[in-house]
């Protein structure tokens, strides 16, 4: 019998591998170890992707399957699904992991329907149970509840994984083999829907995900002027500023990509300082992996206080200026 294989569907947008692609290799490695030494394979679709394939091969993939074709340059749901459905029918993997991104999430659902197999979405953890089945832990009700999902009889067992859950492997881990796949199956398909182009928004500040200190602001911050206090504190600490949905809706923040929580990003800083945040579940799930949570809220009954390691019941406008001044004095 061949050794088991964990498959990862990596993704590129305009010739750049997305961060979750590398994190999926990290997730696959964890599962491969639980399987007692499975190999890690990934597949990438695109045009002129040799370099990207080599990058994946040096980040923990034992095998990198490339579907290199000009027709696959942009994400085309019908072409991509056609190729991957045939590919997985041939490979017959036990497990396939996908990014829980707009593109890969849609693609995974499409391929799952064609393979008539199960797909769990936005997994926050993956592990094997005693029978060797993949336990896919998914958030429900905004993350208030986590549910285990199993796919007992159909194969492959497929899951999408959110960005920021698993760590990528470091470069130089392994030197995988690159395998070119035949894409002639596309010849028989003329897609009805066509992706004409990608418009990238100006390069986003990704510092929030890597920052050791994150200052988060909620509706209680009160104004754009007050928001500058958060910016000042975070910049002194070399951190980044994040926000809740209500603060985003007020227009005080740096945009949607800084929203933390269920429909935003997940962070794992050393310290999270929450300002004027009540503590709705939708936000809490995004900060729960912070090593230390400090919150400042003038309402002693704000739920955030019991989800924090340390709480300050005070008007932040009376605390932050003093804190900022003190850090300035010290540095």
């Amino acid at each position: 019998m061949l050794p088991p294989e964990v498959f990862v569907v990596t993704e590129q947008v305009q010739g750049q591998l997305t961060p979750v692609s590398f994190e999926l290799l990290g997730a696959a490695k964890k599962l491969a170890e639980e399987m007692g030494g499975a190999s890690i394979s990934c597949v990438l679709l695109g045009a002129d992707i040799r370099d990207l394939g080599e990058d994946l091969a040096s980040h923990g993939a034992d095998k990198v399957y490339l579907a290199e074709d000009q027709r696959l340059a942009l994400y085309q749901n019908e072409y991509y699904a056609l190729f991957l459905t045939k590919f997985f029918k041939k490979q017959q993997p036990e497990v396939v992991l996908w990014g829980a991104t707009a593109i890969s999430g849609e693609l995974a659902a499409t391929v799952a329907a064609r393979l008539e197999t199960g797909l769990s979405a936005h997994c926050s953890d993956l592990h094997l149970n005693e029978e060797g089945l993949l336990v896919q832990v998914v958030p429900a009700f905004g993350g208030k509840v986590l549910g285990d999902i199993l796919c007992p009889s159909r194969r492959p067992q497929m899951a999408t994984v959110k960005t920021g859950i698993f760590s990528s492997l470091s470069k130089g881990e392994g030197a995988g083999e690159i395998i070119y796949e035949d894409t002639s199956i596309l010849d028989g398909c003329s897609p009805l829907l066509k992706t004409l182009k990608v418009t990238k928004e100006k390069d986003r500040d990704t510092s929030l995900k890597e920052a050791a200190v994150v200052v988060g602001g909620g509706w209680g911050v009160g104004s754009g002027e007050n928001w500058t206090l958060l910016e000042r504190l975070s910049s002194l600490l070399g951190g980044a500023v994040g926000c809740t949905r209500p603060a985003l809706d007020e227009g005080w923040t740096n945009g949607e990509h800084t929203m933390i929580g269920t429909s935003g990003i997940t962070i794992k800083p050393k310290v999270y300082i929450g300002i004027g945040i009540s503590g709705a579940i939708h936000h809490l799930v995004g900060i729960k992996d912070a090593e230390m949570i400090i919150s400042i809220n003038k309402d002693a009954k704000a739920p955030i206080l019991s989800f924090s390691d340390y709480g300050v019941v005070a008007d932040f406008k009376k605390v932050l200026p003093g804190l900022i001044e003190k850090i300035e004095e010290l540095s």
Binding site: C151, S306, A314, L323
Partner: peptide, 29 residues
């Protein structure tokens, strides 16, 4: 359905919630 639900869990979100008390200068320290 190919997927079957297993156990449910509640993520552990509660923390110590130790309050830092005192005048603003004390809290800052």
């Amino acid at each position: 359905s190919p997927t079957q639900p297993g156990d449910l869990h509640e993520p552990k979100l509660q923390r110590a919630g130790k309050l830092l008390e005192g005048e603003p200068e004390v809290v800052v320290d």
